[in-house]
Amino acid sequence: MELLCPAGNLPSLKAAVDHGANAVYVGFKDATNARHFAGLNFTIDELRRGIEYTHDAGSKVLVAINTYPVESGWSDWQCAVDTAAELGVDSLIVADIGVMDYACSCWPRLPLHLSVQGSATNEDAIMFFHDHFNIQRAVLPRVLSVRQVANIVRNVDIPIEVFGFGSLCIMVEGRCQLSSYLTGCSPNTYGACSPAAHVRWEDRDDRLEVRVNGMLIDRFEPDEPAGYPTICKGRFRVAKQTYYALEEPTSLSVLNILPELYRAGVAAIKVEGRQRSATYVAQVTAIMRAAIDACVADPEQYQPQQEWQAGLARLSEGSQTTLGAYHRPWS
């Protein structure tokens, strides 16, 4: 079971490689990837150096080109595919059918992974991409139970990768337009939720309010920690009840179910967080490496160590973790 770690820049890439990632995934400095944030991601030169560092250590570099180009932006995505291929990356992570078709026909020897943004939640959708574009791996959206993951692994001929730690998308990736409904920019088209330019923080009567393009997403008491206002983690009112109507600010963590994923035949565990610091990447990579090694060495006796749990909790949104959809009652 491989460990894939995120890198938003060279220091994070080195941190991931140094702490035991089998592969790192990165993106270019534009909307061609789903972590399109200011100051983040790789120039061509940085990527070249990143590939060298990673390959020297015996690890792999994957490039995410996993947003959906509209017609006018097509050349940027085409250019991203060509650049990554020419630099000698190990695989591309792609969602859009058009981009996949292009990569598959122009760079037939470059392995393609189906991105989580491709919304493939079942074996037939995965086989669609396999039959037409020869994908070598599929990343599953964070909406499946462990049993459903195991069924997919059993029924498809290609390795399956799942998310193991980090921010939790609770909507099917690639099918969430909550952000564009408020801002015009979505993960699909722009590569980010609630882009910073649309976010406004305001003190009102000692309480901190956060609005996205004018719409109130949450309101914090003076002693409450305030997280980034993704719409799905805001507080709202339904009938008379005010609560986190969609999901609490929380992170996904599979520490407790690693042996189940291992026994299910999952090929790789992915850590979310290209927008995080190198320190964060180092800490999460080290913990996940230790956990996966312990799990693979003896899945029957595997017990998540308390220091791993505490370490990951400290790095989590709202200092709490969840099993998300892996654990059926969450749904």
Binding site: R142, V143, L144, S145, I170, M171, V172, R175, C176, Q177, L178, Y181, C232, V238, A239, Q241, A245, L246, E247, A325, W330, S331
Partner: peptide
């Protein structure tokens, strides 16, 4: 507009 889909049922959650 149907904007998003999830494993979770939000009506049941409410």
């Amino acid at each position: 507009l149907p904007l998003a889909w999830s494993a979770r049922c939000y009506t049941a959650r409410a």
